[in-house]
Nucleic acid binder design. Sequence first.
DNA 1: GCTGAAAGCATCTCGAC
DNA 2: GTCGAGATGCTTTCAGC
Lengths: 138, 138
Amino acid sequence: MALLADDGRMSFTDLAKETGLSVSAVHQRVRRLQKRGVIKGFTAQLDHGQVGLPLTAFVSIKPTDPAAPDDAPERLAHLTAIEACHSVAGDESYILKVRVASPNELEELLQLIRAAANVATRTTVVLSTPWEGRRPRL
Amino acid sequence: MALLADDGRMSFTDLAKETGLSVSAVHQRVRRLQKRGVIKGFTAQLDHGQVGLPLTAFVSIKPTDPAAPDDAPERLAHLTAIEACHSVAGDESYILKVRVASPNELEELLQLIRAAANVATRTTVVLSTPWEGRRPRL
DNA sequence: GCTGAAAGCATCTCGAC
DNA sequence: GTCGAGATGCTTTCAGC
């Protein structure tokens, strides 16, 4: 059932046909999934290239002072160019995924990140994206 | 306008109120954005933890034979645990984002990746995700 | 490219199984 | 947890500007 909600903006009546359930049953199930948080929301998938943010990069960060409290996520939350923030195992402490308009903006962003979170950065620029946001097979 | 489509499954009538345009104008604009590919589609955001895939990792890959043709994306496309595939600048050639149910599955997946694409892998396990899929500020 | 109205459907609620 | 029917409201198309 969750597999079918991946089609995003599909009418509940079509969902009902696909699943063989009645329309109201589908409706209630989706409502329940939203309340339980299994479905966190619905979004439009935008083409970042066409929307003015053609440059994607991964930024790994490591605290310059390992003794300092690790509140990097809050310190970086205001930087809207950061699309995702993952705490990771390994040499670095976080991996950020960022979207910017140009190399210049990337440079500015890295300075902001270093200043805001007191970290060293290691940046990996994305050249192309064969695919992204593919739905996991359940 | 694209900012408002981020709310995903919103009625066109509500969009029209927000934008001050008429309902049909909104309708036409969205259709145009979809045809131009600016809006690639609509999806439900699922909670991967609650959907049986609580373990996320980044896998960087590097060809074992640098002379071989680089067709890793096609060779890996059938592995549905791979959510995204980015070609990147730097020491490694691709970064994959994968979702699996358990460490065991991750181990199996890495073997499959190495065998399918003839590559060496470097894996970074995600411990937690303060945020993800945030909408870029336009 | 925007508007407004009309026709067709989907959504959502409710009572019942 | 599922179903069916009814009121409400949204989507979609079309002619006109």
